[in-house]
Amino acid sequence: TTVHVNGVTYHFPNPEEAKKFVDRVVKEAGLTVEVKGNQWDVE
């Protein structure tokens, strides 16, 4: 699973890890998340 955060790419072994990361980032920074298949874009 690939997560893009403001142009930076993070790779995770599974969607659960990616979701935990995204949830944390979104809570801390108040960002928006767009999910496209296995790819997350966070802005």
Rank of each mutant, 00 (worst) to 15 (best):
residue 3 V to Y: 02
residue 1 T to L: 10
residue 21 F to P: 01
residue 2 T to P: 02
residue 37 G to K: 04
residue 16 E to D: 10
residue 20 K to D: 11
residue 37 G to C: 04
residue 8 V to A: 07
residue 14 N to H: 03
residue 15 P to H: 12
residue 14 N to S: 12
residue 22 V to A: 07
residue 3 V to L: 05
residue 6 N to E: 05
residue 28 E to W: 07
residue 32 T to M: 08
residue 37 G to P: 15
residue 34 E to Y: 04
residue 5 V to T: 02
residue 36 K to H: 15
residue 41 D to P: 08
residue 19 K to L: 09
residue 15 P to R: 08
residue 2 T to Q: 07
residue 8 V to M: 09
residue 19 K to M: 13
residue 35 V to A: 02
residue 35 V to T: 07
residue 2 T to C: 11
residue 14 N to R: 01
residue 13 P to M: 10
residue 34 E to W: 02
residue 11 H to Y: 13
residue 23 D to G: 02
residue 14 N to K: 02
residue 10 Y to N: 01
residue 11 H to V: 07
residue 36 K to P: 15
residue 22 V to T: 04
residue 41 D to V: 15
residue 26 V to I: 13
residue 10 Y to Q: 02
residue 3 V to C: 03
residue 14 N to T: 12
residue 1 T to H: 07
residue 40 W to C: 11
residue 27 K to D: 07
residue 2 T to K: 05
residue 36 K to D: 15
residue 8 V to Q: 09
residue 21 F to S: 00
residue 16 E to A: 08
residue 4 H to P: 01
residue 43 E to W: 09
residue 43 E to C: 11
residue 9 T to K: 11
residue 13 P to V: 08
residue 28 E to F: 05
residue 29 A to P: 09
residue 9 T to D: 07
residue 15 P to N: 11
residue 33 V to N: 11
residue 38 N to E: 15
residue 17 E to W: 02
residue 43 E to L: 14
residue 34 E to I: 15
residue 8 V to S: 07
residue 24 R to T: 14
residue 25 V to D: 03
residue 23 D to P: 00
residue 24 R to M: 13
residue 30 G to H: 07
residue 41 D to A: 10
residue 20 K to Q: 12
residue 27 K to Y: 09
residue 42 V to C: 07
residue 16 E to V: 05
residue 29 A to Q: 14
residue 42 V to L: 12
residue 24 R to F: 13
residue 8 V to N: 06
residue 2 T to S: 10
residue 18 A to W: 02
residue 2 T to E: 06
residue 5 V to G: 00
residue 41 D to W: 15
residue 10 Y to H: 07
residue 32 T to Y: 03
residue 23 D to Q: 04
residue 9 T to P: 14
residue 11 H to Q: 05
residue 24 R to C: 15
residue 31 L to N: 10
residue 2 T to D: 06
residue 21 F to D: 01
residue 19 K to R: 11
residue 30 G to P: 05
residue 10 Y to R: 00
residue 38 N to G: 10
residue 38 N to P: 14
residue 25 V to R: 01
residue 6 N to W: 09
residue 35 V to L: 14
residue 4 H to D: 06
residue 24 R to P: 02
residue 38 N to W: 06
residue 4 H to R: 14
residue 11 H to N: 06
residue 3 V to T: 01
residue 22 V to F: 12
residue 7 G to R: 01
residue 16 E to R: 03
residue 42 V to E: 10
residue 20 K to G: 05
residue 31 L to C: 14
residue 6 N to P: 01
residue 2 T to N: 04
residue 16 E to L: 06
residue 11 H to T: 08
residue 39 Q to W: 14
residue 28 E to P: 07
residue 27 K to I: 11
residue 40 W to L: 07
residue 25 V to G: 03
residue 2 T to G: 01
residue 13 P to L: 12
residue 32 T to G: 10
residue 20 K to L: 08
residue 34 E to N: 10
residue 9 T to L: 11
residue 21 F to T: 00
residue 28 E to T: 05
residue 23 D to H: 03
residue 14 N to Y: 03
residue 17 E to V: 04
residue 35 V to K: 03
residue 29 A to H: 14
residue 22 V to W: 10
residue 17 E to N: 02
residue 14 N to L: 02
residue 33 V to R: 00
residue 35 V to P: 01
residue 13 P to E: 11
residue 32 T to V: 14
residue 39 Q to N: 09
residue 26 V to K: 10
residue 34 E to D: 12
residue 8 V to I: 11
residue 3 V to S: 00
residue 10 Y to W: 05
residue 10 Y to D: 01
residue 31 L to P: 06
residue 34 E to P: 14
residue 40 W to N: 07
residue 21 F to R: 00
residue 38 N to D: 15
residue 34 E to L: 04
residue 3 V to K: 00
residue 23 D to E: 09
residue 2 T to F: 12
residue 42 V to Y: 09
residue 26 V to N: 09
residue 14 N to Q: 02
residue 32 T to H: 12
residue 27 K to G: 11
residue 43 E to Q: 13
residue 12 F to A: 00
residue 11 H to I: 08
residue 40 W to G: 09
residue 38 N to S: 06
residue 19 K to T: 05
residue 9 T to A: 13
residue 12 F to W: 00
residue 23 D to L: 04
residue 30 G to S: 06
residue 25 V to Y: 11
residue 37 G to Q: 09
residue 34 E to S: 12
residue 38 N to F: 05
residue 35 V to D: 14
residue 14 N to I: 02
residue 25 V to T: 05
residue 3 V to M: 03
residue 25 V to P: 02
residue 13 P to H: 09
residue 41 D to H: 15
residue 33 V to Y: 06
residue 31 L to T: 11
residue 27 K to W: 08
residue 1 T to K: 03
residue 18 A to H: 01
residue 30 G to N: 10
residue 35 V to I: 15
residue 3 V to W: 01
residue 9 T to Q: 09
residue 21 F to H: 01
residue 30 G to C: 09
residue 17 E to L: 05
residue 22 V to G: 02
residue 43 E to I: 15
residue 31 L to G: 14
residue 15 P to L: 13
residue 27 K to Q: 11
residue 14 N to C: 05
residue 1 T to Q: 06
residue 18 A to D: 01
residue 2 T to A: 07
residue 24 R to H: 11
residue 22 V to N: 03
residue 33 V to M: 04
residue 40 W to V: 08
residue 3 V to A: 03
residue 27 K to T: 10
residue 42 V to W: 08
residue 17 E to P: 00
residue 22 V to H: 06
residue 2 T to V: 12
residue 40 W to T: 08
residue 19 K to Y: 09
residue 26 V to C: 10
residue 25 V to C: 10
residue 18 A to M: 04
residue 39 Q to P: 11
residue 22 V to L: 10
residue 29 A to N: 11
residue 13 P to F: 07
residue 42 V to H: 09
residue 1 T to P: 04
residue 24 R to I: 12
residue 31 L to F: 12
residue 33 V to G: 11
residue 37 G to A: 04
residue 36 K to L: 15
residue 12 F to Q: 00
residue 12 F to Y: 01
residue 11 H to E: 06
residue 1 T to C: 06
residue 15 P to G: 08
residue 42 V to K: 09
residue 10 Y to T: 02
residue 16 E to M: 06
residue 29 A to D: 11
residue 14 N to W: 01
residue 29 A to R: 00
residue 23 D to R: 01
residue 14 N to G: 06
residue 42 V to R: 06
residue 10 Y to L: 05
residue 41 D to I: 15
residue 34 E to A: 08
residue 34 E to K: 03
residue 33 V to W: 11
residue 16 E to I: 05
residue 15 P to F: 14
residue 41 D to T: 15
residue 25 V to N: 04
residue 21 F to V: 01
residue 1 T to W: 15
residue 3 V to Q: 00
residue 29 A to K: 03
residue 17 E to D: 10
residue 36 K to E: 15
residue 20 K to C: 05
residue 22 V to D: 01
residue 26 V to E: 08
residue 10 Y to E: 01
residue 10 Y to K: 02
residue 3 V to F: 02
residue 20 K to T: 05
residue 13 P to C: 07
residue 18 A to T: 02
